[in-house]
Design a binder for these strands. Structure first.
Lengths: 373, 373
DNA sequence: GGCCGGAGAGAAAACGATTTCCAGGCCGCG
DNA sequence: CGCGGCCTGGAAATCGTTTTCTCTCCGGCC
């Protein structure tokens, strides 16, 4: 059967076949105005038989609306972002938009490319969850009245709506959880500190520590890079510091996975010898060995908040006040990488493997990262 | 300074400012034909000062080319796909294309949506790495002469170019690796068998086993779903089968991570009590505890092959012969989840944790999955 | 019975870019 | 010095859709 579709089946073909004008076809397709039921039926039949699909570009051209929303993230291979992207796309489709994805890989040059692409494709709004948005790029968007929302307080963009995250809350819970188990030597592996979100987490950590009378030494505040490799490196560094921390709080889950790897490679048992807490609570946190205690930042909430803030308002409302956005909560999810320091895992279901003890100094020297191909 | 960009700065504005016609501006922007150097300079200056960005939709409309390539994957939260997407995007940008992403989440309905979106946006080619492409959808693409490439032999689409993967090779290596260490009770956790790629891997496994004189019992061929949860469930099922397998080959790395989780929860040491091999060799395989032995299928190679096959040829060359595509090799990457059965890890750097022994039956009964929130 | 109002359908302009066609100017050659 | 060809720039057509404007037709009300 399969009617062979001619390469170009546009609205005129449909109109001719249905014996009406293109205007009528357009009205039928868009359910606008009232068209005689019999005519509409004829048009629909013709369209179906011809496999007519409206040309989105032509429509976008005349409408000045593309139906596209831009989403710029730092990297797609960090599992947190796919989770965010999925939520974002779902929420966007609900609202009749499609998303145009861009990943910067932490390179400002790629950020510029992303913004340019989005401008060219006439996106109706941009959500950014990475850094590198300088004044020029901002100008490029604001000059075209493209709304912008900054998600997760990645950087301060005073001209954009911003979805803030209450990092303090989850990190306080994490620190108190550790302190309550008796930890005092608690280290932090932060993210890259030029990311405002990472910096905020670091500050929250220091303040939460101070609130319980602890002040982490400089050697216990290591800057990571939000990768597993970075977590591994930072962990090895911390294993060599004095005093050796009994717990490590990580700025994201990738870092924590690197730390778990390092601990295992060095023969340190988790949580008996070392407690580890991640941040983001990616899906995989449930499946690490042992399952990772982490601070949850719900990507679906982030995505929804971003979209709610997005398509309506023009960026600079004529020197109007800066919009203050929603605040996303975070909270600790306790799994099995945290326990009391020095033996006594203390967890009821503690069937997790116990490493053979090994002197800390020995471990720090002997353990090395796997040389990846 | 920042020149406030007027909402609509089109080619006419630039032309007027530069004192030339729109045709000249177009020629300059596209580096086509020869334009007087001084004129070109004037045009470029005007364009820069006005922050002129050509309207992609208008260009696409007149050119009949959108500069978009569609990429349809099954799910974005499986880390293999982000790696593939990243490679694909990189290769696409090199060729002057952008990608339009679609994820089906294994739902045929979403596949239809994806195809429709891509047709509407006038993509110049589609790469598919999932299943669910039925005749109607195929027709929708072929009727519009949109080239299609099926990556990783996800399903048989006889009308499309297909990038085949030599699953056999890597799986043979894996089976021989295990057999060489003395394993005989080797189980397989496959992917969903309606995915042709998963089925092919299953067949390759059975044949590789047969080649060394083993024929796995039915209870050692479990169908998973390519998720960590599926791996966990399948592992628990296998732990209860007789004989209990000493090694498990998984259809992808997510499944393997689920198995590692299950083993750890049951007090089974990896690799002393159980060897595990994954498939895909996602980046994270290096960082599991212990690091995962896996069969590598280079996403960059897949992406490049797909793009090389893509944008040139029209789908059905007038009842011409089906194009046969490249074959991507796979090979085993040995890390630390594989070793001889029953004690004797046998690895030089074997500092990995050793679980306290526990009867198999006991383990199978006592261990259960963590109830996720 | 005539006029007015409203609704429904068609013709045509517009959206912003590319590109063909055409005209004019410059240079070279005879 | 004149003519022809080539190169460059401009006007206009085109892509497929939406939308305004206009026309026609019909019904109701005075």
């Amino acid at each position: 059967m399969a009617t062979p579709v001619r390469p170009s089946v546009d609205i005129h073909v449909v109109a001719r076949k249905a014996g009406v004008s293109t205007a009528t076809v357009s009205r039928v397709m868009n359910h606008v105005s009232t068209v005689d039921a019999r005519l509409a039926a004829r048009v629909n039949k013709a369209a179906a038989e011809l496999c007519y699909t409206p040309n989105t570009q032509a429509r976008a051209l005349v409408l000045g609306k593309s139906g596209l929303l831009g989403l710029i993230v730092s990297e797609i291979t960090n599992p947190f972002f796919p989770e965010l992207i999925q939520s974002f796309e779902l929420a966007a489709v609900e609202r009749g938009y499609e998303i145009l994805l861009g990943s910067t890989n932490y390179a400002p040059a790629r950020m510029a490319q992303c913004v340019r692409r989005m401008v060219e494709r006439k996106v109706e709004g941009v959500a950014v969850m990475t850094f590198g948005m300088d004044e020029d790029l901002l100008q490029e968007l604001s000059g075209r009245a493209i709304p912008l929302v900054s998600v997760g307080s990645t950087q301060t963009i005073d001209a954009a709506v911003s979805i803030e995250v209450n990092y303090r809350q989850g990190i306080e819970e994490a620190v108190q959880h550790l302190a309550g188990m008796g930890h005092r030597a608690i280290a932090l592996i932060s993210g890259p500190l030029h990311l405002r979100g990472a910096e905020l987490r670091r500050v929250a950590f220091v303040e939460a520590m101070a609130a319980i009378g602890l002040s982490p030494s400089g050697s216990h505040l290591v800057e990571g890079d939000h990768t597993m490799e970075g977590g591994l490196r930072a962990a090895r560094q911390l294993f060599g510091s004095t005093p050796v921390p009994t717990a490590i709080l990580c700025s994201n889950d990738m870092t924590a996975i690197g730390v778990l790897h390092a601990a295992s490679a060095c023969g340190l048992g988790v949580p008996e010898d070392l407690s580890v807490i991640g941040f983001d609570d990616i899906h995989m946190a449930r499946f690490t060995v042992p399952p990772l205690t982490s601070v949850r930042m719900a990507p679906a909430d982030l995505a929804r908040a971003a979209l709610d803030a997005l398509p309506l308002r023009p960026l600079r409302t004529a020197s109007g006040p800066v919009e203050t956005g929603t605040v996303i909560p975070t909270h600790l999810v306790v799994r099995q990488t945290t326990g009391s320091p020095r033996r006594r895992g203390g967890r009821a279901s503690g069937t997790w493997l116990r490493g053979k003890r090994m002197g800390r100094a020995e471990a720090a020297v002997s353990c090395g990262p796997e040389k990846p191909g």
